[in-house]
Design a protein around this nucleic acid. Sequence first.
RNA 1: GGAGAGAUGGCCGAGUAGGUCGAAGGCGCUCGCCUGCUAAGCGAGUGUAUGCCGAAAGGUGUACCGAGGGUUCGAAUCCCUCUCUCUCCGCCA
Length: 423
Amino acid sequence: MLDLKFIRENLEVLKNKLSKRNLEINLDHVIEIDQKRREIIQEVETLRNERNTVSEIIAAAKKEKKDASTEISRMKEVSQKIKGADTTREEIEATLRDLLLRIPNIPDETVKEGKDPSDNVEVKRWGEPPQFDFDPKPHWEIGEKLGILDFERGAKITGARFTLLKGAGALMERALINFMLDLHTREHTYQEVFPPILVNRTSMTGTGQLPKFEDDLFHLVDPDYFLIPTAEVPVTNIHQEEIIEGKNLPLYYTAYTPCFRKEAGAYGKDTRGIIRQHQFNKVELVKFTSPETSYQELEALLNNAEEVLKRLNLHYRVVSLCTGDLGFSAAKTYDIEVWLPSQKDYKEISSCSNFTDFQARRANIRYRSEPKSKPKFVHTLNGSGLAIGRTAVAIIENYQQKDGSVLVPEVLRAYMGGMTKIG
RNA sequence: GGAGAGAUGGCCGAGUAGGUCGAAGGCGCUCGCCUGCUAAGCGAGUGUAUGCCGAAAGGUGUACCGAGGGUUCGAAUCCCUCUCUCUCCGCCA
């Protein structure tokens, strides 16, 4: 959410900046509603002031046992007026809030203007694609043959885009989770948390999934809860409605959770294999920082996520998303894309973003730089560190052997009971 | 799921025959005084949000006593609904 005052005072600049995103936003309407809101507030407050003043007179009169019936009947009318005006005020404020919640974050200055993913900027590359003296197979063929990925049974148990992991496949999933959590907690000083994976409407609104993207979420009707699409939601909301002491910033959290996405609008995309599932595992990195340090913290967070791929010795590149491809809540985003031999292309495996004060304002997460100073909004950041399923895909494809087996990356062996090869 | 208790300012905790309560008192914190250091003591101050006035200091209006609604000229106080916390019982990984 953007600051209403900021919108009011920087309307033209803001229009220009938001126009770089690939969507329509009507800010004039917001200004118009805000104007109405301010007028009605004035009206209500003037009436209330009258009521409060006369109430004291009535109280004094009653105490002295004097008659106050004239004032009382006059205040009856005033109260009626207050009621009416207040209802109008509430309606206007609800409308305004809903409008504000649907305005995306402002892209950072350093984000390139562009329409779609083709305009994203590659900022770095690490390692080399592996060379094969045979035709590398896609992970679903390898996985099925090895008996570690079972698509038919996943679909039978639940439906499309659900997969059953078996044996070494399940083991590798667990090993990857542990490996990543250990790396981030022991070497990158993140605190491990395990949050609820069902959250309420307020939390979803706080991080920006609601009200605009309800169709992408799995929703429980009774109670009115949602399955998280990413650990970003519960972890960022840890400090919802809190004032953090400045000396405690920055805060680093890491969490493993399953994630659930409807993938509405992705029909026909990545239908084979486990690239795009309704349920997948992810280790997430979340930071709460002061506004001054958030961009350098973003670079550090990106490095922390990259480190996972380096240790697994998987070739990847990093791209900086252009304004048209930037997510709703983000001011700046780096995607890490890992090399997939079967596609001869890079596939997103992590997305690291600075949300500046956008989520903090929605979720009301503030900090005090000095013990007595006025609370200000923190900056929130997060990134995948990494998506587990897609990491498994990358390992299966990049470490595949001619005989159909898959070598286990060195760092993972200790986590898999010393296993060096699957198959 | 059943029965009961509770939710007040940074914390503890008063305040229920409705009116001058943004809210006693204590703790904590800040500033000052005092004491050869520390402690104790004394004095003053100490919530948030937002509008208006002011260069600023500050002044002033409005709202907030878990949330929402109702009764009333007027609600922390009365009524209803909800949420959360605690205790006991049941069930359960």
